[in-house]
Design a protein around this nucleic acid. Structure first.
Lengths: 224, 224
DNA sequence: CGTTCGCTGTCAGGCAAATGTAAGCGTCTC
DNA sequence: GAGACGCTTACATTTGCCTGACAGCGAACG
């Protein structure tokens, strides 16, 4: 989880950085808008925190430029207590949230998590559905707290299902993702792994549904 | 733009409703959580505004239930000035934003617009007519909140009807869309699927009308 | 090296759901 | 009331999926 912090006041910046790092985020920091723009263009960030009162190019202008360039990283803006208009125009320009300075760190963290969850991409380091958990970095899986022993292929398939959930994964897509550059597999191979996965997921609270003629979908049978 | 407002204080509710309607939103209002849950299950809303301090089932519980049922309407929660914990847990539960009471209406409007814009770009793969709903990505269908079990052909036909509604879909076009390149089907096949679909749509608020000699049209008899 | 073992993917049999033809009957139109 | 069109049931066929058996392969191990 990588966050870019754009803040000109060194005191504030250090305070935020420390809190974020303690919560497990990787934080990069720039004091002005121009270097922030290039950092965002070059590197992937999960989120950007932008102080609206920056020297030279201000935060509004930064956001406008980013969005115009099609960069759609989630942006949270920081604003002074009395800058109501700032907040409004910031949100209308394409920011995703704001916080009023000074603020409580737990609240900032909650908002960050909400924003990142919302825009969660393939870079998330953990996937979950029901009591199923996949740790992408360690390539381990667990269901209901108990570790799951998965082979490579089974893992690939389950990851695809979980990334897509609750949407359907096209079977042809699965075949392609399992095949090397030139040797196509039979679609039957996918069926095999689905079958084996189902066996290993027995008794869990998720289920692999077949969508005839299309593919598969991971479902959590509704507990009401 | 349809918004559901869940707020027990009549004074506050009326104030918000008036502001929203002036800004061009259609507003429905409930005072408690239970009717809100059913309204959200039955009808499509672009956004829900939930007061966190509700009688009986509170706002948190409402949000938890909605998310567990897979209802992913954007939610903005209203909270008292001092309820920091409320806000944090609300966001972690799956709300998308919050506002502290009392607030400035223009700011509320800006946030609503931002939320709706965001959710549009995120999903946008749903078709609806009356209480009928097709989620293309998940390949699920529901009528009046209850899931519909459709086969591939039924799905294709219903999708055509919903895409065209309220216009007529030419029967010949349907035949072509079901046929492979060269083997033409009988137009009788379409009639069969229409018949099966009608059975499954029994009791809903939409109806498949026959236009003799031309084709079919999806109608909502109730709303004129 | 040879053996073992687990993973992979093909084959083939079995099965259930989905499909579409045929046919008889109802309904609309002229 | 005759003909065309549409609805519906029954049923045979087709399709797509599931799964057990098995062979190839490579890594680990002795």
């Amino acid at each position: 989880m990588r966050i870019l912090l754009v803040e000109d006041d060194p005191m504030v910046a250090d305070g935020i950085r420390e809190g974020l790092e303690k919560a497990g985020f990787a934080v990069d920091h720039t004091a002005a808008a121009e270097p922030a723009a290039s950092a965002l263009a070059l590197t992937h960030y999960d989120l950007a925190i932008v102080d609206i009162g920056l020297p030279r190019m201000d935060g509004h202008e930064l956001i406008r430029r980013l969005r115009r360039r099609g960069i759609k990283v989630p942006i949270l803006i920081l604003t002074a207590r009395d800058g109501l208009d700032d907040r409004v125009t910031g949100l209308d320009l394409g920011a995703d949230d704001y916080m009023v300075k000074p603020f409580h760190l737990p609240e900032l963290l909650a908002r960050l998590r909400a924003l990142i969850r919302r825009s969660r991409s393939a870079t998330a380091s953990e996937l979950s559905a029901g009591s199923l958990r996949l740790d992408l970095a360690r390539r381990t899986a667990s269901a209901r707290g108990a570790p799951l022993d998965l082979t490579g292929r089974e893992w690939d398939i389950l990851q695809q299902l979980m990334l897509a959930t609750p949407n359907v994964v096209n079977k042809q897509k699965m075949v392609e993702s399992l095949s090397e550059w030139d040797n196509e597999l039979t679609s039957n191979a996918v069926e095999i792994y689905i079958s084996r996965l189902r066996n290993k997921l027995q008794g869990g609270d998720v289920e692999i549904r077949t969508i005839r003629g299309i593919g598969y979908r991971l479902d959590e049978p509704l507990s009401v």
